[in-house]
Simulated assay, not measured.
Amino acid sequence: MSDGYVDPSGNTEQFRAFANPPDATTAVESPSRLPLVLGGAVVGVLLVAVATWLVLS
């Protein structure tokens, strides 16, 4: 009869999960894309304003 104990060295995936448990301090967050989006929007508005100024002058 099985005792329900699973040996963490049974396979590589289980051993890695046992040896390096997930931790909130090791999680790497991706940087925010908000500054990139806002910068692109500002550049777009400036390009439209310059194009409009060139067409009207």
Score class of each variant (00 low, 15 high):
Met1Asp: 14
Ser2Ile: 09
Ser2Val: 07
Asp3Tyr: 07
Gly4Arg: 08
Tyr5Val: 04
Tyr5Gln: 02
Tyr5Met: 05
Val6Gln: 11
Val6Thr: 10
Ser9His: 13
Ser9Asp: 06
Gly10Lys: 03
Gly10Phe: 04
Glu13Gly: 04
Glu13Gln: 15
Glu13Leu: 05
Gln14Lys: 09
Arg16Val: 01
Arg16Tyr: 14
Phe18Thr: 01
Ala19Arg: 12
Ala19Gln: 07
Asn20Gln: 09
Asn20Ser: 11
Pro21Ala: 05
Pro22Asn: 02
Asp23Tyr: 04
Asp23Gln: 06
Asp23Arg: 07
Thr25Leu: 11
Thr25Glu: 15
Ala27Arg: 13
Ala27Thr: 06
Ala27Met: 13
Val28Pro: 03
Val28Lys: 12
Glu29Gln: 08
Glu29Pro: 01
Glu29Tyr: 10
Pro31Gln: 11
Pro31Ile: 02
Ser32Asp: 12
Arg33Tyr: 10
Leu34Met: 11
Leu34Glu: 14
Pro35Val: 05
Pro35Phe: 09
Leu36Thr: 12
Leu36Tyr: 06
Val37Gly: 00
Leu38Thr: 05
Gly40Arg: 01
Ala41Gln: 05
Val42Leu: 14
Val42Met: 13
Val42Tyr: 08
Gly44Ser: 09
Val45Phe: 13
Leu46Tyr: 03
Leu46Gly: 15
Leu46Asn: 02
Val48Met: 15
Val48Arg: 02
Ala49Met: 12
Val50Ile: 15
Ala51Gln: 11
Trp53Met: 09
Leu54Val: 13
